[in-house]
Design a protein around this nucleic acid. Structure first.
Lengths: 182, 182
DNA sequence: CCTACCGATCGGTAGG
DNA sequence: CCTACCGATCGGTAGG
């Protein structure tokens, strides 16, 4: 693992807990035992560090949620594995502070710029892929389906993070089962 | 309107856009045309300012969503007005940066302390009230119902804030209609 | 990769 | 309510 990768591994963790703005160069460098300017040199600006953290988190999401479903045939089987994998990735606490993307989106949705754009494009691609599988699976209204599944998954994350409700994930799964094609 | 109320009106607005941590004393005081220490004196600490902003936002939520429903009889009629009022409050952009509470919860769910506690207690009381009306309305599983409605409303807010999808609110209403008792 | 520094801003205080 | 200040930390730069 390169030094840059080691920095980003920690950066993603910190950002999921404290937000992408709480990801300060001073804090991150002292935690990793290198100088501020040493860390800074890997990215060139705080914004580049934030963008790199978004990309690193996206790669983790791909490995944890998307990749395992690619063995399944397109349509209903893959859609089901996507949905349950999405809930499972939150339940397993892949990021210590909950869903990196939900936290980052809430933080940056009111701040126009490259970080917001990267978050929107990444989440957009994932939601489009879900809608595609829903269409192949014969779901009546794929966009409505994706809207509801997205809401339920994010709702479970929010409940778990703020209220420590362990059963939030089971509730999301139950509601999603009702939406999935039989 | 007292000076303190004027400060909090602006504080709630800023916090909904930039977060409760972005609510800096320096920024807020310069926007309002008074000195930092002048503003500081009204609250005593940044944390007290944040708590006061949460309370001010809660009062607005009560006026916008809860109060109009109190004319309706308990049970199904009041539940329906609660749910549609909740969506409507986001659609009307009562807070310029979207749902104050969703943003604040995402920001503070990983930071133990009085602000997180205040947010959790306030949202908890609202969700309990929804569950109570659902029970009176004869909803089969009131807790599951509230989980799903909460998710759908927050999902619409997230979609609208990040993707500018105008139809997110209509999608939430459609899904909620399917859950409400006939 | 480092030390040493820059101006700006942070939350907060002293004193009036 | 104000001016004037405190130490700490921010993102970032110079120079090696």
């Amino acid at each position: 693992m390169s030094r840059r990768e080691a920095i980003l591994e920690r950066a993603v963790e910190v950002a999921s807990e404290e937000g992408l703005e709480g990801l300060t160069i001073g804090r991150l460098s002292s935690e990793l035992g290198l100088s501020k300017s040493g860390l800074f040199g890997h990215f060139g600006s705080k914004e580049e560090l934030q963008l790199a953290a978004v990309d690193a988190a996206s790669a983790i999401f791909f490995d944890e949620v998307v990749k395992p479903a690619l063995k399944e045939p397109e349509g209903a089987p893959r859609l089901r594995v996507y949905c349950h994998g999405w809930v499972g990735y939150l339940e397993r606490e892949v990021f210590s502070g909950g869903c990196f993307f939900a936290a980052a989106a809430a933080e940056f949705d009111g701040r126009p710029g490259p970080v917001r754009d990267r978050l929107r494009d990444g989440q957009g691609a994932w939601l489009d892929e879900l809608a595609k599988q829903a269409r192949v699976a014969g779901v009546e209204d794929p966009k409505q389906f994706v809207f509801e599944v997205h809401a339920l998954v994010q709702g479970a994350n929010a409940r778990y993070q703020l209220f420590d409700e362990q059963d939030a994930f089971a509730r999301a799964r139950r509601a999603i089962e009702r939406l999935l094609p039989a």
